[in-house]
Design a binder for these strands. Structure first.
Lengths: 178, 178
DNA sequence: GTCTATACGTGGATAGAC
DNA sequence: GTCTATCCACGTATAGAC
């Protein structure tokens, strides 16, 4: 999927690359849809990277938020194919009622990471937020998702980094230092 | 495409709903890809709604930006299918080198609208921005795109409106009143 | 369990009558 | 120009031998 796109992942090609006959597919999975569900369930349980140790008590809000953006951007740029596949699966799920539970996996995975990061930052530096942390995490995650979507299409890394930088500043404005 | 998704737009069904024989398709278009290119060219030239008259000199930056968000949100919620089709076409273009020119149509269309809005707001109210207007428009558009992507999946209108509201506040913080 | 063979539907595209 | 008929490739899924 990462190499050739979700569309190219036919049962024939999957089996071919797995070195088994195509007929074996329906021994392993009831249907192709079942495989997709299993894949998306796995993605939805992607472990959230633990950045607890990277936040030190002396860091400013701006630095804490910048760290979140950096980690996110690293992940995107390290493996753009993965982002693209997640995007493909998301739109696929939006049109297939059997997969609709997974239409927001991309969002959910990163939302959890953002929320965790904001919580750790608050714990370690003693800062608080001027709006509910869930709301801040939600808008931050949505915005980051937008930035990465645009980057996937334009591949303008300079613009993406600048966007995340401005975004970090915007979000940090909602932090209150003790 | 809006009703049943881009995938469902086969040459057969297009001709069926157009009331012509399937063979007529390849008289009108060289290939299905050509039709897609034509469609995306049309989308890319979507007229930017003129909001010049809605901005009055007495409005605060916060109100000006909120107006931008409102207009955007109206468009998304009025016709979610269109947003979804744009998203589908974007990912399609990302995997098809012949369509790669159009992978960022969604972004480009709204970027132009945002930029125009910010310029008009500056002209009518005399305000300026503390960072280059192009950079502010870029990050704002990306963030709005992210919010609408998430909404397409979750259909949580309350969360979306709240996200846009916070976003408006964030962006307005970059305005300097005269 | 894994294979081969095959059924069966659905794509895009073309040929050629009218 | 528009139609019918057809080609051919490829998709998922199943049947049944080994």
């Amino acid at each position: 999927m990462k190499r050739d796109g979700v569309r190219a992942a036919t049962t024939r090609r999957i089996c071919e690359e797995a070195g088994v006959a195509q007929g074996a597919f329906h021994y392993c999975f009831r249907s192709k849809q079942e495989l997709f569900v299993l894949l998306m369930e796995r993605d939805a349980e992607a472990p959230v990277q633990d950045v607890r140790d990277e936040i030190t008590p002396s860091m400013s809000p701006r630095e804490c938020i910048a760290l979140l953006m950096d980690r996110y951007w690293q992940q995107v740029e390290k493996d753009p194919g993965e982002q693209l596949v997640l995007a493909e699966l998301s739109v696929l799920a939006l049109r297939d009622s059997a997969l609709s539970d997974y239409s927001s996996i991309e969002h959910r995975v990163y939302l959890a990471a953002t929320l965790q990061h904001l919580r750790h930052a608050a714990e370690r530096t003693g800062m608080t937020y001027s709006i509910p942390i869930e709301e801040l995490a939600e808008v931050t995650t949505s915005a980051m998702l937008g930035v990465s979507s645009v980057w996937l299409a334009t591949r303008d890394s300079v613009a993406a980094r600048r966007n995340l930088d401005i975004l970090a500043e915007m979000v940090a404005a909602y932090a209150i230092t003790p």
